[in-house]
């Protein structure tokens, strides 16, 4: 190649994408005082205040409906019981979630690489998804007790239940993503004789990433729900019992405030999981994907 250079014309100027930046604290304060934060906060506070006032004025007994203040007090008092239980549920959720990610991604790659695998396996993935977990959880618990020692069998059974629920969104989203590759880009890869492996690595997987991350956010919450539902069905007590068991016991004993406190913890955990996955998603897609781009003006 020779080296005569050609300059872009005036009409091709770059669209600068630097966002206005202040220092960290300025940004934080601006974020926290933005309408997106203030509006839901006001609604939430109004709701809690009306709830507390209603409970006080109507003299509703706490075993029917405790006020938010009592719930907080209970949470503080029963911390030592609730937190370890939440920790167990969290472990089940995480293990099931990781299993769902690995199995979902591997299977969806197999599905897109080979039509035979797709035709023969996908219907069963759908069956797995549409079977109510409450209905099959007892079976899973019985079966795992047959093959595993009692210390670990419950944990494994609960993980399996949560995995069944969390698995499908990842599988279906990733499969969709792997198949939604831009046609012209496929042509580019074909033109340069890319191997199937190169096409998967450099084209299909990156194209699928936004879809996969979308599935991840759904799955994270579902894994938690799956774990809690399965704990309800299992209903096991003892050392390694999760937060659902605490809810169950509290309801038997009419400790409704403790129930509320436990539900609050589960909700917070769910929000935490969703939030972390959103942050992860924005980190990975931040510089290129529409969903993570901030529009100027």
């Amino acid at each position: 190649m020779s080296s005569t250079q050609i300059k872009p014309s005036e009409s091709e100027t770059i669209q600068a994408s630097e966002s206005p930046r202040g220092n960290f604290w300025q940004i934080l304060v601006r974020r926290l005082t933005s309408i997106e934060i203030i509006a839901p906060l006001v609604v939430g506070v109004l709701f809690l205040v009306s709830w507390e006032l209603f409970v006080r004025w109507s003299n509703t007994p706490p075993y029917l409906l405790p006020g938010p203040l009592l719930v907080i007090q209970t949470l503080w008092r029963d911390w030592a019981i609730l937190l370890p239980a939440l920790w167990i549920t969290f472990q089940i959720t995480i293990v099931a979630f990781l299993a769902a990610i690995v199995s979902g991604v591997v299977l969806s790659i197999l599905l897109t690489l080979n039509k035979w695998v797709e035709y023969s396996l996908f219907p069963y993935a759908v069956v797995l998804q549409t079977t109510p977990i409450v209905a099959i959880a007892p079976l899973i618990i019985i079966w795992t007790r047959q093959v595993l020692p009692p210390q670990s069998s419950t944990f494994v059974a609960l993980v399996i239940c949560a995995w069944i629920i969390a698995f499908f969104p990842i599988l279906s989203n990733t499969t969709l993503g792997l198949n939604s590759v831009d046609h012209t880009l496929k042509d580019v890869f074909q033109l340069y004789n890319a191997s199937p492996w190169q096409t998967l690595l450099y084209l299909r997987l990156p194209s699928a990433l936004p879809y996969f991350l979308g599935g991840l956010r759904i799955s994270g919450g579902l894994a938690l729900i799956g774990a809690v539902v399965a704990e309800f069905v299992a209903g096991t007590g003892g050392q390694r019992s999760g937060i659902a068991y605490q809810i169950l016991m509290a309801s038997y004993n009419l400790q409704i405030a403790r129930m509320f406190a436990a539900i609050l913890l589960i909700t917070l955990l769910g929000i935490g999981i969703f939030w972390s996955l959103t942050v992860l998603s924005n980190l990975l897609l931040g510089h290129w994907h529409e969903s993570a781009l901030k529009r100027e003006n």
Binding site: M1, S3, Q5, I6, K7, P8, S11, E12, I14, Q15
Partner: peptide, 24 residues
């Protein structure tokens, strides 16, 4: 680098496509 030079995009090596105009 040579190809970038030829089409007159020197300096934009690390820009992402969304940061470029249609002509670029």
């Amino acid at each position: 680098q040579e190809a970038i030079h030829l089409v007159g995009l020197t300096g934009f090596e690390s820009a992402y496509p969304r940061q470029l105009s249609g002509g670029m």
